[in-house]
Design a protein around this nucleic acid. Sequence first.
RNA 1: GCAUUCGUAGCUCAAUUGGAUAGAGCACCUGACUACGGAUCAGGAGGUUUGGGGUUCGAAUCCCUACGAGUGCACCA
Length: 482
Amino acid sequence: MNIQEEVSSAIQQAVTALYQHEIGDVVLQPTKKEFEGTYTFVTFPLTKTLRQAPAQIGQAIGAWLVENTDVVRAFNVVQGFLNISIADAAWLKVLTNIAAKPAFGTFPSQNRDGKPKSVMVEFSSPNTNKPLHLGHLRNIFLGDSVSRILTANGYNVAKTCIVNDRGVHICKSMLAYQLFGEGETPESSGMKGDHLIGKYYVLFDKAYKAQVEEMVAAGTDKETAEKTAPLMQQVQQMLRMWEQNDPETLVLWNKLNGWVYAGFDATYRTIGITFDKIYYESQTYLLGKEIIEAGLQQGIFYRKDDNSVWIDLTEEGLDQKLVLRADGTSVYITQDLGTTELKYEDFGADRQIWVVGNEQDYHFNVLFSILRRLGRPYASELFHLSYGMVDLPTGKMMSREGTVVDADDLIQETIDAASAAADDAAKGKLDEFSEKEKTELFQMLGLGALKYYLLKVDPQKRMQFNPAESVDLHGNTGPYIK
RNA sequence: GCAUUCGUAGCUCAAUUGGAUAGAGCACCUGACUACGGAUCAGGAGGUUUGGGGUUCGAAUCCCUACGAGUGCACCA
């Protein structure tokens, strides 16, 4: 029993002894620093049942505690707050206990059948058509942090990442590379693979917009122009080829994605992030259909006349939701149902956490509701760690307007700023360090600053990113606190 | 329109989840140091917690309402 529990039960005994009254659980809170004491017991709630003024109750209980226990040394009462000071002997006991436990601060693996509880945390989840940006960094640091916290709390944590490596957006980069690439490679261009592909994604968008504008100028209305522009048709064609496993398309797809992965890996390495398992959507996007079939049999889903399959979630305050198209193909939610099941099977994960932006709040509500309806054993242990977008002082980040803050650039800038500031502050004291040691030091300082800056705001809220402040070494920043 | 998240000092954020006098940093003001309109140190000012109602011993926190901002409401992912 720890001190807090001892005091709590002592208070219960005190109330019984003094007032012949049984009270429920006693909640203690740490005493505010401007008052004497360690723990505080609030007596206001007792005034009704005990029919006495709050301060009086405090006095009575406090006196009883000093008299009858050896944990409590002294007390004082301010209105309805009973501040309790703990005896030195009791602290001594706590300290010796801590000293005897080498793993103090971490909790032992806990669980029902002796095995540690396992939890899966999914984060980062990038697309393979452009490099990581500031938003990803908030996501990644959040995911990494909860993983560490859970590990310290005795969970067996599996960090996963699901890569969105297929679809129209990927085909856009692929097509642009095919048309304008002229065999350029990361080596020949000296660019990181993910940045190189990002360049072609932007190039596609430019060429496509120009084409649409041209058509509009020639008299086509905007909507049809967007749909029928030759470049868009070529992209659709490429997607069909990919789905039919066309060898040539797959070779290109593999080559470009490979460059992007190499780029991502470099970034992850710099910031010290690793994953236990990476899922690829190209391998999971067909999952989930069996679950729908099974659910149909149980009457959880229903089929409309046009053969599409739906679920009615109006009881949960949500809408009717399509889970299978009329042609039998799956949608986003179908795929997520399948992937969740797959992750459960792969890791036996009792719990799953998704670190995903708050624009997907509704999607996860629906996903969890469906899994509950299906009676999946893990359905009550799913959590969407939702976080707000990151704004710049100039406004929102927009990839179209080119106002995104690139992750690699940002990391480099932060490290540079750290090195400049550290050099300045140390005034030559760093000379005794080797170049390698210095680089490591600056990297540590810079990344620490960046992490702290992105994590100090409540995840739920939108936050504003101020480049100058993020690399500042004073004030409420990582380096200063260190 | 419906759903959902949010609104705290001039700015960016806290507040141990319903507790005591709502706290930090930046910016600002005063003083010290001084070859500086810089750096550092000491101090100060700054608030009807968006407005209004309610719940209770007690509300920034819970409920209702108005206003303001973000996001979502695809047979895209």
